[in-house]
Amino acid sequence: MVAYKRQFYPGTTSPAKNRRRYMDPKINLKKLRDVSMDDVVRLMGHRNPGEAYKSIHPPIEEGKEPDCPIRKLVTPIDGAKHGDRVRYIQFTDSVYFAPISPYQRAWMYLSRYRGLDTGTLSGRQIIEMRERDLEKLAKELIDDETFDPALTGIRGATVHGHACRLDEHGLMFDAWQRYVWDADKKEVVYVKDQVAIPLDRKIYVGKPASMSDLKKRTTIFRADGVDMRDDKEVTMYGLRIHKLRTLGGFQPFKFKGE
């Protein structure tokens, strides 16, 4: 039997290719900045840097787990082993060519990482995970190419802004102004954590990418970028799914060679 080769996503255009790249766990995403782990912890605001992780249960090795074949099969992630709380980070992605958008985040997370729960809305995307594992993942996602300082927001609450026009510096709207434009450094700087509690010191996340660069990196199909209808394979894929689902619920006997 021929080994199955994962295909990830159809299409020939740049958003389609970017979707494939982000989903493929064998591809290392480009690291574009290096925000320190302490600053990532501050941005999330769940604990202070250096503070011990809070536990909700004793380390698994100390507990008496019921005999269960699934538990034997699955290796717990580090935070689960230690009994960490489940905490979150949530990103908001602008419609204006943000590098990644909510559904691609979900697909990417589930394709690349273990031990997380994720929820997808129109503007924001939450990841919930054991705290120490979350911190590692959060740093990766803030440092890598899926994050843009101007068009990606780290927001726990009051998340709207993804569809608002950009401000005069090209930043996505945030009612809490968790991040602001540093005109001298020409960088975006966080002054509040993800639930808008003021930080005790500023956290720089770097310079925004140019719009031309973002248009190449984005996963979003847009009429003023790459229109989905210009990618025949993606268009056909969507229509086919709809047609098959429709027939499946109505006239399944009409499936022929699908």
Binding site: S101, Y103, I241, R245, G249, F250
Partner: peptide
């Protein structure tokens, strides 16, 4: 969802992802 990489809030996944199948049933 396919075009923009986003849709509505969580509930859209339930109602609108399975809707094709019940629209003619």
């Amino acid at each position: 969802k396919e075009r923009t990489g986003r849709l509505g809030f969580y509930g859209f996944d339930l109602q609108d992802q399975c809707g094709s199948a019940n629209s003619f049933a």
